[in-house]
């Protein structure tokens, strides 16, 4: 059998098992999995910048938040259609991503990191202070579950919503897989490794980075949509630096530049945060320690570590 067929079969099986889990687990556990899936999509989006292109954005909660607020506002004021809310949210995230990208891509290296961080904080401040639109620190409340217009799928229950989140994450993963394997994705990896040679060969390096930035923001917005309809509320906290730092860690822990690494990293970090919060409120300290351990023992992330070990065994 061709390896791609095997991979496809495995992916379908994983998806089927994951879908079946929703009916078996407690509502608490299912909720935890929904959180994992939401952050997996966010990490997947950030990875396009951080892992593929080598652009360390430290303000990705901004696009997540813009998506979540937009979807929430559409639900509260316009329509309860999932598709309208999602389309508006992704468009808004990408638009903000375009503006921020224009600003951030004037810099590089550590300055890029700092300016994305600053733009993230500005977004947080706007969410906090524009009371008439965002509800200020109270946030937006009373956002109901959306209408998907699909008969047979009831997303009002946690188990039903889990299926939606799973489908949303699978769609994001498939789309990202197309992107990273395409000529565009290949060019991003080239730019990561040697932007000067890419430019000399004829690639418009700036435009690639800009497009990667905007697409990455779109994925973050999509994650925000799934988030806000699940929680039913959104507050500035979701736009803040802690979320940005968490998602960065998810990408690095899992394996920046790999497709599945950020996904697994999201599961790991979300689970850890749930476990840790049962014992201590020093989650940020634990997060920092986790980061240091990964830097020391698996600087290229867990997926890469396991992959290298596997290859080493096979060739030994």
């Amino acid at each position: 059998m061709r390896p791609s067929l095997v991979a496809g079969a495995v992916a379908v099986a994983v998806f089927a098992v994951a879908a079946a889990l929703g009916g078996l687990l407690s509502s608490y556990s299912t909720g935890l999995l929904i959180d994992c899936l939401i952050f997996a999509v966010l990490a997947l989006g950030l990875n396009l910048l951080l892992g593929q292109t080598g652009l360390p954005s430290l303000g990705h909660a901004a696009y997540f938040g813009v998506g979540a607020y937009t979807a929430g506002l559409v639900m509260l004021h316009v329509s309860d259609s999932f598709w309208w809310g999602a389309a508006a949210a992704i468009a808004a995230s990408m638009a903000v991503g375009a503006v921020y990208g224009l600003l951030a891509l004037r810099t590089s290296g550590v300055y890029f990191l700092i300016i994305t961080l600053a733009l993230g904080q500005i977004t947080f401040a706007i969410a906090f202070s524009w009371r008439s639109l965002t509800g200020g620190d109270d946030g937006l409340r009373g956002i109901g579950r959306p209408d998907l217009g699909l008969p047979g799928l009831n997303v009002d229950t946690t188990a039903g919503y889990y299926l939606l989140a799973l489908a949303a994450a699978a769609a994001a993963l498939l789309l990202m897989r197309l992107i990273v394997r395409s000529p565009f994705g290949e060019a991003l990896r080239g730019i990561h490794q040697n932007p000067d040679r890419m430019a000399a060969l004829g690639y418009n390096v700036w435009l690639y980075k800009f497009l990667a930035f905007v697409i990455s923001a779109g994925f973050a917005g999509w994650a925000g949509v799934i988030f806000v309809y699940y929680k039913g509320f959104i507050s500035p906290e979701a736009v803040g630096i802690v979320v940005s730092a968490e998602v960065t860690l998810m990408v690095i822990v899992g394996g920046a530049g790999t497709l599945i690494g950020p996904f697994l990293g999201a599961f790991l970090v979300v689970f850890m945060s749930h476990v840790v919060s049962g014992y201590t409120d020093r989650w940020l300290t634990v997060l920092g320690l986790l980061y240091i351990c990964v830097m020391l023992f698996a600087p290229k992330g867990i997926v890469t570590l396991v992959g290298d070990a596997w290859r080493a065994r096979r060739s030994a």
Binding site: I179, R181, P183, E186, G190, Q193, R197
Partner: peptide
């Protein structure tokens, strides 16, 4: 591009002037 193969390096060079260099759907 040190972390890519010889073939991928040549591929990036050949692709550079092609209109498909922004393609996002079909595999490279």
């Amino acid at each position: 591009f040190p972390d890519m193969t010889v073939g991928e390096n040549v591929h990036l060079a050949v692709r550079a002037l092609s209109t498909s260099r922004f393609g996002m759907i079909r595999p490279a």
